[in-house]
Amino acid sequence: MTIRLVTGPPRLTGTAAELAPPDRSRFRAAAHHARRVYPGCVGELLHRELTAFAEFGHRFDRDGLVPRLATEILARPLRDADGHQPGA
């Protein structure tokens, strides 16, 4: 009987690129804006996704969906309880 030691995957070196501070700030702003534009569960889900992306998710982005989402959310105007834009 032969005993074989199984080695795991190579160790991570921690060299993944950080998101630039202005970009990280943009995603956090989009996360906070999402809560105001989409109240309830949808806004909370968008907030969590954008916040997670700002912290570490950008490393796994393959198709640019979250950056496009942030752009779309930031372009949405706030509406009051009656559905009107404030100041309009």
Rank of each mutant, 00 (worst) to 15 (best):
M1V: 13
M1Q: 07
M1G: 10
M1H: 04
L5I: 13
G8F: 10
G8Q: 09
P10M: 04
R11M: 08
T15E: 14
A16T: 15
A16S: 13
A16C: 06
E18I: 01
E18T: 12
L19R: 09
A20R: 11
A20D: 11
P21K: 08
P21R: 06
R24I: 00
R24M: 04
S25E: 15
S25I: 05
R26W: 07
F27P: 00
F27V: 03
R28T: 02
A29L: 14
A29R: 15
A30F: 03
A30C: 11
A31H: 08
H32W: 06
H33Y: 05
A34Q: 05
A34V: 13
V37F: 00
Y38K: 12
P39K: 02
P39R: 04
G40E: 05
G40T: 09
G40K: 08
C41G: 06
G43K: 04
L45D: 08
L46F: 13
L46I: 06
L46C: 09
H47L: 01
E49R: 11
F53I: 01
A54C: 09
H58L: 03
H58K: 05
H58N: 06
D61S: 14
D61N: 12
L65A: 12
L65R: 14
R68T: 08
R68V: 02
R68E: 13
R68Y: 02
R68K: 13
R68A: 13
L69K: 10
A70L: 09
A70E: 03
A70R: 03
T71C: 01
T71K: 12
T71Y: 01
L74K: 04
A75Y: 04
R76W: 02
L78V: 12
A81T: 05
A81S: 10
A81W: 08
A81E: 12
A81R: 14
H84P: 00
Q85K: 05
